[in-house]
């Protein structure tokens, strides 16, 4: 406006330039907004229900969403139909693989076909011994419901379900008021989080559950950042 004495052509020019700059700034601004929304949505998507376990060999969740391309090749190569891809609307990053131990646990194939199928190493091929897998860790959550602990019956379902028998779960004898109990006890350093114990627990609500290792303890090794 202060350049009133300029030629009409050049003021047209600068009006056009202003429009261009305003248009570009608007586009850039709205795109930045979308970026921020996506970033915060991505932050949310990192957390997922504790019951949803990643397949064996899954890298740290922080990096997982940068590596996993959601192709489902792990799902296809799982011989037991354990794995599934998160559907849109489930509260985890859409398309990423997981399993619910209580539905179908990991059978711990020795050749780890799910990780072998992964094209991006989101399921790391550095996992060569399935016994080193770290999908989570079993925890006896139902200390007040477990038949063996409460003395209702001498149940050994989880003990016999465990594929790392006598190492990951043992039945520890305990004497109390002259009664003998056998308490299922998880040894975290041996537990892979396959979830077979949780699957086989005879109670309507499993008394032993696989939880993410970092939720359970930080000092047991593998999962520390």
């Amino acid at each position: 406006m202060s350049n009133g004495n300029k030629l009409p052509r050049s003021s047209e020019h600068s009006a056009e330039r202003r429009r261009f700059i305003a248009g570009t700034a608007q586009a850039a601004g709205s795109v930045s907004l979308v970026g921020l929304l996506l970033a915060s949505y991505g932050e949310q998507a990192r957390t997922h229900p504790v019951a949803a376990l990643r397949p064996p060999g899954a890298i740290d969740e922080q990096d997982f969403l940068g590596a996993c391309v959601r192709c489902g090749l792990c799902v296809r190569d799982c011989p037991f139909d354990t794995l599934r891809l998160a559907r849109f609307g489930e509260s985890m990053a859409t398309g990423t693989p997981y399993f619910i131990a209580r539905d179908v646990p990991c059978e711990m194939c020795t050749d780890i076909p799910c990780a072998a199928a992964c094209p991006t190493d989101a399921l790391s091929k550095s996992l060569t011994d399935i016994g080193d897998a770290d999908m989570g860790v079993a925890v006896v959550t139902g200390t007040d419901t477990c038949y063996s602990i409460t003395g209702v019956a001498h149940c050994t379902a989880c003990y016999f379900a465990c594929p790392i028998k006598n190492e990951a779960i043992t039945m520890e004898m305990k004497q109390e008021n002259g009664k003998v109990f056998f308490v299922p006890t998880v040894h975290r350093e041996h537990c892979t989080g396959c979830g077979k114990c949780e699957k086989d627990c005879i109670l309507p609500e499993a008394a032993i559950k696989v939880l993410p290792r970092d939720l359970v303890s930080h000092d047991s090794g593998a999962h520390i950042d």
Binding site: L38, Y41, G42, A45, R46, G66, V69, R70, A93, T94
Partner: peptide, 8 residues
């Protein structure tokens, strides 16, 4: 963010 953001 270290994630494949558009795939969300």
């Amino acid at each position: 963010t270290g994630t494949i953001v558009w795939e969300l």
